[in-house]
Nucleic acid binder design. Structure first.
Length: 262
DNA sequence: ATGACTAAGTATCTTAGA
């Protein structure tokens, strides 16, 4: 049965519940993975999503920060949640669909301002988080799986507005890109967005600080949708919904989507 | 110059985002 999956860093699921509902109405993905819910699980407005047919939810949450949720029209059962790097943060949750596909929803640490773990503890935590993800995938190679989320790294030169100007900016430093690539390789993950849209600039995040984010267009592709090789051939129709960044009181991230014919 | 915003908490500023 074919299905569509979406991922979106919502930057507060309670404040932006109306935007989530609008996306669900307009795009009708079968599954929507959210990051930065910034809410305890019991305070997520799940009834509003259930009213639109999203009757299944798997989530991990905490007060104020982080938090991930999987909303689904399709039945989905819990398939674990990891606390990589031992941060005690709600940054991962996994679910399994009835067709046997496992969905991983990740929110990788942002990493702070200075790309040096000797002076910035958060940068070290980001690298450690990616290393632990890598080791987990090496230990148990994923099959029939999809990995989505805000990975907080824009790996390619075409994934940022200026490769040269961002080389020393957290999210695009060579050490982060190397950690991401090792983790991707450990799970044999295929970047579905780039499989479908191989060429050209592609962003999923634009800073709130720009006077006119659309005109400046200084974006980065921080949000990713990957799949294992056994199902990557079934993926198609990848999109990044740039126009959603222009909605009233938007998240600074745009939703990323793909469909699978399985 | 990227360039001066946004959200939550216990909150009238601090921490975090990236």
């Amino acid at each position: 049965m074919p299905f569509t999956i979406a991922t979106w860093n919502i930057n507060s699921v309670r404040l932006r519940a109306p935007l989530v509902e609008r996306l669900l109405r307009e795009e009708v993905p079968d599954i929507l993975c959210l990051q930065e819910c910034k809410s305890p699980v019991e305070k997520i407005p799940r009834d509003a999503f259930a009213a639109l047919g999203y009757t299944h939810m798997i989530a991990r949450g905490q007060k104020g920060y982080n938090g991930v949720a999987i909303l689904s029209k399709l039945p989905i059962e819990e398939a674990g949640a990891e606390d990589h790097a031992g941060l005690g943060h709600a940054r991962h949750v996994a679910g399994r669909l009835e067709n046997g596909v496992t969905v991983h929803n990740f929110y990788v640490p942002a990493g702070g301002d200075v790309p040096d773990r000797a002076v910035n503890e958060k940068f070290g935590q980001k690298l450690d988080y990616l290393t632990d993800m890598r080791d987990a995938f090496r230990c148990m190679p994923p099959e029939k799986a999809i990995l989505v989320g805000d990975l907080n790294i824009a790996p390619g030169e075409e994934d940022v507005w200026s490769h040269k100007q961002l080389l020393k900016i957290v999210s695009h430093t060579p050490v982060e890109v190397a950690h991401l690539e090792e983790m991707r390789e450990a799970g044999s993950w295929v970047d579905i967005t780039r499989q479908d849209i191989p060429d050209g600039k592609l962003y999923s995040w634009w800073s709130y600080r720009a006077r006119d984010w659309d005109a400046a267009d200084k974006g980065r592709r921080l949000d990713h949708l990957w799949a294992t090789p056994d199902i990557s051939g079934a993926a198609h129709s990848s999109r990044i919904l740039r126009h959603v960044r222009g909605w009233e009181k938007p998240s600074d991230h745009a939703p990323v989507l793909a469909s699978f014919d399985l």
